[in-house]
Write a protein that binds this DNA or RNA. Structure first.
Lengths: 199, 199
DNA sequence: AGTGTCAATTGACACGGCGACAAGTGGTGA
DNA sequence: TCACCACTTGTCGCCGTGTCAATTGACACT
């Protein structure tokens, strides 16, 4: 936090992120990132040991500037199980389009690179914890659909909220982000919330 | 159907399929396929113009020997909408583990190769037609959950049955194939079939 | 025998992208 | 003045895909 060039590492991360967003996570090479950061290709390797590492750090950087943590506050503060579920779904589905480009790149890398695989899996495990917390809150309220035990319910919710499903519904089936969010929420309710006996 | 060497093209396809299965769709190179087929690397290019083309043809070959068409007969013959839905889900979920290795390889290729992307998308469009037929049959019977219009219901079912979801639930969440099939079927019912007013 | 054809082989090569290495260069502070 | 630091320049190796040209060996026709 001192040099005229505001921290090369940060410039590289920014460049990486911008390119990922521009290409929707596709076709971003080390040389492209370097060029955009106004730095030599080798300088990138001075800061990141490999392409996998750069992608991992880029997603962490994005989490940081996009406030991944703050987004979860309403969910944690929800009082009822259903409110917690809804708040979590709301936060995650709104976050999905933001992380999609870098998630896609990391997912592609995951196929061949062990570090990338590990980083992605960790990320998804963290996200699963949010699912689990929501399911637990539902159960505490006696609102969990008895068709599923908590483990299975968590996995189903986790699946429902996956990046790949967002990709399929919005990019292939052509759903708007709003339609996606609404339908996923109502589907989660149908699957997980105890059907009302009567009213 | 005559030479001592039973058709080189076929030997290559078999080799490709075996390697894909052995590696769960990962790390299969042209040279590996050639070696396993007992043929030079160049011979592979004599029969398939590119790696993408080889993968595409391998999945078609697999469809052929695994009877992808026959599997759909029970679904087409079902009388009620719910029976049709169940038969389709049963056929597809049982087919998924079979095609997974080649599907995975093709999905990876899809990211970078236009031909592979087109072939995969076509495959998935075909599968979607099965979903659509089941939803239409449900609707005809007045059994479609009014929470969804037929389009949306089809897309939801399509999403539910995706290769990626099978991969996540069985390979990551660790569900058995049986648990997967049962849960997906019951989830499809919860989502798509009209809730009984009473009984 | 002689000729043509066809499938396949051999070996070499170009290319793109990642990653490593070595020898500079230029600015800063002790 | 010297040393250090971040960075540059240029070069190189590796890998996997895809191409090309020359050759071989089997068969078929005449």
């Amino acid at each position: 936090m001192s040099s005229a060039q505001p921290d090369t590492r940060l410039r590289i991360l920014k460049a990486s992120l911008e390119l990922l967003e521009a290409g929707q996570g596709q076709g971003v090479r080390m040389a492209d990132v370097a060029k955009r950061a106004g730095v030599s290709r080798q300088a990138v390797y001075l800061h990141f040991e490999s392409r996998a590492e750069l992608l991992i750090q880029t997603t962490l950087y994005l989490d940081d500037i996009a406030g991944s943590q703050e987004r979860l506050i309403p969910s944690r503060e929800a009082t009822t199980g259903v409110a917690r579920l809804d708040a979590f779904i709301e936060a995650w589905t709104a976050y999905l389009p933001i992380i999609y480009p870098s998630a896609r790149a990391l997912l592609a890398m995951r196929e061949t690179d062990e570090d990338a695989a590990h980083a992605w899996d960790q990320r998804m495990r963290d996200m699963r914890e949010g699912c689990e917390a929501a399911v637990t809150a539902l159960q505490r309220d006696g609102q969990l659909n008895p068709a599923h035990d908590p483990q299975e319910a968590t996995d189903l919710l986790w699946m429902l909220l996956s990046v790949r499903n967002w990709e399929q519904l919005t990019r292939i089936s052509g759903w708007s982000q709003e339609a996606y969010a609404a339908k996923i929420r109502s589907s989660a309710h149908q699957l997980l919330v105890m059907p009302k006996a009567s009213k």
